[in-house]
C-alpha cells in the first residue's frame, strides 16, 4: 500500500526535480568546460583549472613586401567546439491524484490575526493523496481503487532571479573574491 502524501509534497517534488535536473545539466556543462577547455596541468597562477587548452597550428603567411613567413596560432579549444549547455525553457507537468480522507485539525486562533475568526473556520484541513490513474471515459468501467479524482497541470518557465537572490549571489561572489 502506498502511503498517501501531502499535496504540497506531491506538487513540490516534480517542480524541485526540474530545478535539480537543470542544475545537473549545468554541472555537466561546467565539467565539460573544465575537462575540455583546460589542461589540468596546475600551476601557481591557476591551481584549479590549469592552463587553457589550445589548438596550436602554423601556416605560411605572405607579408606585404611579398616575403613568406611561418606563423604560429594558438586558439582556445573552447572557442571552436560547441559547449553543451541546456536550460529548461518550459516544462509541463501533469499528474492525477487520488485523494484520501482529509485530516482535520483545530487551528490555534493565536495566528488568525485580525481576520474575523467566526467567518474563517478554525478547522484546518490537510489533504493527502496518492498518484492515481486517469478516470476512465467509460462510466461503466469498473472503478479501481487508484482511480484519480484530481488532475493537476503545471506549466513551468524560467523565472527571473528575485531581487533577494541577486543580492545573495553578489554577496557570495564578493566573499569569494576576498578570500
Amino acid at each position: 500500500m502506498i502511503t498517501p502524501r501531502y499535496i504540497s509534497e506531491l506538487l513540490g517534488a516534480p517542480m524541485a526535480a526540474v530545478i535539480q535536473a537543470e542544475a545537473i545539466a549545468a554541472k555537466a556543462t561546467a565539467n565539460f568546460i573544465k575537462e575540455v577547455g583546460f589542461t589540468k596541468a596546475t600551476d601557481a597562477s591557476d591551481p584549479d583549472f590549469g592552463a587553457v587548452r589550445t589548438i596550436t597550428f602554423s601556416y605560411q603567411r605572405v607579408n606585404a613586401d611579398g616575403t613568406i613567413q611561418t606563423a604560429t596560432l594558438a586558439i582556445p579549444l573552447l572557442t571552436i567546439i560547441p559547449i553543451p549547455s541546456l536550460q529548461v525553457a518550459e516544462a509541463e507537468i501533469e499528474f492525477d491524484l487520488a485523494l484520501t480522507q482529509p485530516e482535520v485539525s483545530t487551528k490555534s486562533t493565536a495566528n488568525s490575526g485580525s481576520l474575523d475568526k467566526t467567518f474563517l473556520n478554525n478547522n484546518d484541513v490537510r489533504l493527502r493523496a496518492i498518484f492515481g490513474k486517469k478516470p476512465s471515459a467509460n462510466p461503466n468501467a469498473p472503478a479501481s481503487s487508484v482511480t484519480a479524482n484530481m488532475n493537476v497541470k503545471i506549466k513551468l518557465v524560467q523565472a527571473d532571479l528575485a531581487v533577494g537572490m541577486v543580492q545573495l549571489l553578489n554577496i557570495l561572489d564578493s566573499s569569494n573574491k576576498e578570500t
Binding site: 503545471i154 513551468l156 524560467q158 532571479l161 549571489l169 557570495l172 569569494n176
Partner: peptide, 22 residues
C-alpha cells in the same frame, strides 16, 4: 553555484509557475 568557479557564471535554475490548473 556561487562556490563553483565555472557554475558561478551560470544562471541559477529557478522556475516560475506560469500556469497551474487543478
Amino acid at each position: 553555484y556561487a562556490s563553483d568557479d565555472v557554475l558561478k557564471f551560470f544562471p541559477v535554475p529557478k522556475i516560475g509557475i506560469q500556469n497551474l490548473e487543478v
